[in-house]
């Protein structure tokens, strides 16, 4: 079983190298965001206000973790269903979002935008929350703290196990 090691933020060359079906382990920096955080980011974009972090080149992880116990970096932190943020995604891709991590299929509009802007979608294992939490070495709140589990966190991950579900050429494991 060949498993590629990749580093986030991903370069366009690294994205080009990923094909649907590849098994990877990701190390580096990723940002969490789910429904409510996406809604707020789109409101900021619509008002021509800056996003809480520079999204260009970055990776977003669709997740709303459990609260950490004292001494823990983060609680259980598996992916949530990606399709719920499909409507918010193309404008973020247009602003340079490079990679997305979640679970489940994406809409045609998202896939088209991924091809246009050369982005990749990786599937994390839904329900492997404890395993994924063990790959997260640091977690800091970046924005929207009032949203609780839906706040945006900056995570430092090590060897996060993922599968390339939709590549930048539009090939999808879901079709």
């Amino acid at each position: 079983m060949e498993i590629k090691s990749i580093v986030s933020p991903l370069s366009k060359a690294a994205i080009d190298d990923l094909n649907a079906g590849d098994m990877v382990k990701m190390t580096g920096i990723i940002y969490t965001a789910r429904d409510a955080a996406h809604k707020r980011m789109i409101q900021l974009i619509n008002q021509n206000l800056p996003l809480p972090f520079d999204i260009a080149g970055q990776t977003i992880y669709y997740a709303g973790p459990c609260p950490p116990k004292p001494g823990q970096v983060i609680g259980s932190a598996g992916p949530t269903t990606s399709s719920r943020v499909d409507t918010y995604t193309p404008p973020l891709l247009a602003r340079g979002l490079n990679a997305m991590i979640g679970k489940g299929p994406r809409s045609r509009a998202v896939i088209d935008a991924m091809v246009k802007y050369k982005a990749v979608y990786l599937a994390a294992t839904g329900g492997a929350g404890a395993l994924i939490a063990n790959c997260i070495k640091k977690a800091d709140i970046v924005a929207f703290e009032d949203l609780g589990p839906e706040a945006i966190y900056r995570l430092v991950v090590e060897d996060l196990p993922l599968i390339v579900a939709i590549d930048c050429h539009g090939n999808s494991l879901y079709s």
Binding site: M1, I3, M23, A63, G64, P65, C66, K69, Q72, G75, S76, A77, G78, T125, G126, G127, A128, G129, A130, L131, A133, N134, P149, P161, I163
Partner: peptide, 22 residues
């Protein structure tokens, strides 16, 4: 690859008293 992650996850959750899924 996925099923093996699920098995590891179940064991880690039990050992660390961490929720299996968030």
């Amino acid at each position: 690859y996925i099923l093996n992650q699920l098995i590891d996850n179940i064991k880690l959750a039990r050992e660390q008293q961490m929720p299996i899924c968030q």
